[in-house]
């Protein structure tokens, strides 16, 4: 089957191995196209995509916008800071107004869990989740998976360790669903105030409080961005202690495999979750992630749009 089972992309929990495989395989093709002198394909010509961002975003929105333009879609950006939302318009009214402008695909980021599903329930557009609260950020996880496959050949049987603020991380949640579906073993590690307190429904992954043990068998390590607000909220005493306990330093890297790859969803707090020399060092694949982000988002948009003009891809 060469089409997706899902109609929208809300998250990776419950998404089949078939669908993830299809997205990653298409992303690999788009990755090749991105290396060509002419990087544009006509796959979404005539379609309109709106990037509906209710939260600040630079790289994810840019990545989506670039993916949409590479697919020849018409793109509209809609940020809550300069929209009617500020004037009290409800979410569903905002969507219906945008939809009335004959939009085909909505890429949405919002602070609320489940907003993409809510929008899908209330519109006819194809909805792509670009991050909803601490719930999911599926395209980030897909680009992480693509990067692991690109660098390590496969996800099957690989050990992926995610370190940091797991509790508030939509990236971690999407990765733990997606990567385990694809056969990777995921280990999660972070300060006790920043990991979920109830893991009964996420017991297919390993929770390891000792960071050295967490990285010992890792083939890939994903360091999560630490929000400064966590200190204000008394979840952590200081950036310094966090860096010394959970930061990816050379000392910690010495405990890992020689060929481990280091990933980060960005933007990096250099010297906090990741030391500068590691971020820029030989193990780092962070810029590959950024490139893969465009390819993955092209694949998602292309496949959800129904694979139209497939021959042009």
């Amino acid at each position: 089957m060469s089409s997706l089972e899902i109609k929208h992309l809300f998250g990776l929990r419950g998404v089949s191995k078939h669908d993830i495989r299809l997205i990653l395989d298409h992303a690999k093709q788009f990755r090749e196209i991105l290396e060509r002198p002419v990087k544009k394909v006509p796959s979404l010509r005539g379609m309109t995509v709106v990037n509906l961002f209710f939260e600040n975003s630079t790289r994810t929105r840019t990545s989506f916008e670039l993916a949409e333009k590479r697919l020849s879609a018409d793109t509209v950006n809609f940020a809550s800071s300069n929209s009617s939302v500020k004037k009290g318009e409800t979410l569903v009214d905002t969507l219906r107004n945008i939809e009335a402008m004959k939009i085909d695909i909505v890429v949405v980021r919002h602070k609320g869990t489940g907003v993409p599903k809510f929008l899908a329930d209330n519109s006819n557009a194809i909805i792509v989740n670009a991050g909803d609260g601490a719930h999911e950020h599926p395209t980030q996880a897909l680009l992480d998976m693509l990067t692991v496959e690109e660098k390590l050949g496969t996800l099957e049987g690989k050990n992926v360790t995610i370190i940091g603020d797991i509790r508030h991380s939509r990236v971690a949640r999407s990765n733990l669903w997606g990567m385990t579906t694809m056969g990777a073993h995921v280990t999660l590690c972070g300060p006790s105030t920043l990991v979920p307190r109830n893991t009964d429904l996420m017991n297919h992954v390993t929770w390891e409080p000792d960071v050295k043990k967490a990285v010992a068998n890792a083939d890939a390590i994903i360091a999560l961005r630490l929000q400064k607000e966590r200190m204000d909220d008394a979840l952590l005493p200081s950036m310094r202690e966090y860096r010394n306990t959970f930061g990816i330093t050379q000392e910690l890297l010495d405990c890992a495999k020689d060929k481990v790859i280091i990933m980060h969803p960005g933007p990096i707090n250099r010297g906090v979750e990741l030391d500068s020399d590691i971020a820029d060092g030989e193990h780092s694949v962070i810029l590959d992630q950024v490139t893969n982000g465009v390819a993955v988002r092209m694949a998602v948009l292309f496949l959800l749009a129904g694979g139209r003009n497939n021959e042009n891809a």
Binding site: R13, G133, H168, D200
Partner: peptide, 15 residues
């Protein structure tokens, strides 16, 4: 409710 579902879904829980 702060529990398995809130943590799985990333929703803010009340313990």
């Amino acid at each position: 409710h702060e529990g398995a579902y809130s943590d799985m879904l990333g929703m803010k829980g009340i313990p």
